[in-house]
Amino acid sequence: MMSETALRDLNLLPKSERTNETSSKDILAKPYVEPTDENVGGKQRKNVVSLTEPPVNGNEVGHSGAEAVVVEVEYIESDKLTDLEDVDESLKVLLDGLGSKDWVLLCDALNNVRRFSIYHKEALQDILDNVISLLVKALKNPRSAVCKTAIMTSADIFKAFGDSIIDSLDPLLVQLLLKSSQDKRFVCEAAEKALIDLTIWVSPVLLLPKLQPYLKNRNPRIRAKASMCVSRSVPRLGTEGIKGYGIDKLTQIASSQLSDQLPESREAARSLLLELQTAYGKSPVLAPEQDASSDQPLVCTWEQFCESNLPKLSAQAVLRVTSATREAPVSGL
């Protein structure tokens, strides 16, 4: 079941990410320049922030001789992250950094969580719940630099800890579904990648029950992202795993998404149904009535299976999808 916090977050549609970046208590004003979606010269995208003195008399910059400072926050891919120089000291200040109101320090702390996950995951074990709690807070941060770095941190945690984070997954999952459904492209792409990593590193038997409630969410984008996660996760069960989980249950889930609003959801449902049809062919269900005079057990065909487990219209829709794909001509023949 989803936590109350996750449900509350899910009912809030993503708000505008524009905020007033200048605090009345700040010594320096911090105008924020969002990154573009393009790579320049093949380099990774960066957030560039100019730190200058606050205005004097409302519209002029003071001439105290202070120079503008440019802060660059670089999105470093996991395989490019280097090890920590001082593991013990970094661990001591990690939670304070994750709770910092200075967004640059917060990004540094998030990248250190990634380094711990890659090189020293055992050091995080005792404080992992606290780390995830602060990570969820960072995912909600209105600054895109913080949000994207937190998303990348989530992906590295999934890879490092796998099934062991399942009890803490709900608040992370809802935020990633929300971020993958928003319009800011570079945040959306990072969240989609993190969701792919989630389906790779967390067992489908544990993950599928977490995903199912989002298939009925009122936000069609969230339904579509959840449907895509289900479609990627089910094949990892294998034929016997699909049978054990309940091929009838999975077929019902897929059929419910065939008529969904967004094409991504419908395509994910079609892909899942083809996977289920293939698995069913390898391990069909026995027919309820057997021929006593025959040595061979009678099995239900895929068509009979769908008709016996789905409403009539849903069964027809499923059979149209699976039959059309099976009968499609092979190009080049």
Rank of each mutant, 00 (worst) to 15 (best):
A123T: 04
P142N: 12
E67F: 02
Q290C: 08
E77N: 14
A123Y: 01
Y119W: 04
R115D: 00
M2F: 03
L258Q: 01
F305V: 06
N309F: 08
P31E: 03
S50A: 13
L128A: 14
V71G: 03
N59D: 13
C107Y: 06
G42K: 09
F161Y: 12
P311Y: 09
D295T: 13
I196V: 15
K121Q: 06
A160I: 02
L310T: 14
R218K: 13
A66V: 08
Q44A: 14
K92T: 12
Y75K: 02
S231R: 09
L51F: 11
R326W: 09
Y280V: 07
T199H: 06
S294G: 03
L319F: 12
Q290N: 15
I196D: 14
S314L: 05
L124E: 03
L84V: 05
P35V: 05
E17L: 13
L28K: 04
N57C: 10
I165M: 12
A138E: 03
A269H: 06
E275Q: 01
S283R: 12
F116P: 04
S308M: 09
K25Y: 11
W302A: 05
S100Q: 05
L12H: 13
K148Q: 15
L106R: 15
V56P: 06
N112I: 00
S78A: 14
T239C: 03
K92W: 13
T153W: 01
Q125W: 09
D86M: 02
S256A: 08
F116A: 01
L98F: 02
E85K: 15
L286R: 14
R270H: 09
R18W: 10
Q261H: 13
R143N: 11
P171S: 10
P54L: 00
L94V: 11
T82V: 14
R236A: 15
M2R: 05
Y280M: 03
K148M: 15
E240G: 12
N57K: 02
K101W: 06
T149W: 01
D88W: 01
R114C: 04
Y32S: 00
S154E: 03
D291N: 11
P204R: 12
R223W: 07
D295V: 12
A150C: 07
Y214W: 04
T199P: 04
Y245E: 05
E327L: 02
S323N: 08
G42I: 05
D170R: 01
G244P: 05
L134F: 10
L272T: 01
E240W: 01
D9F: 13
E289H: 03
V234I: 09
K282E: 06
T5S: 10
L105T: 15
T322R: 07
L110Q: 05
E327F: 11
D248N: 07
R18A: 05
D156K: 04
P31S: 10
E4P: 15
P171V: 08
V70C: 03
L51N: 00
T36E: 08
K101N: 11
K312C: 12
L319V: 10
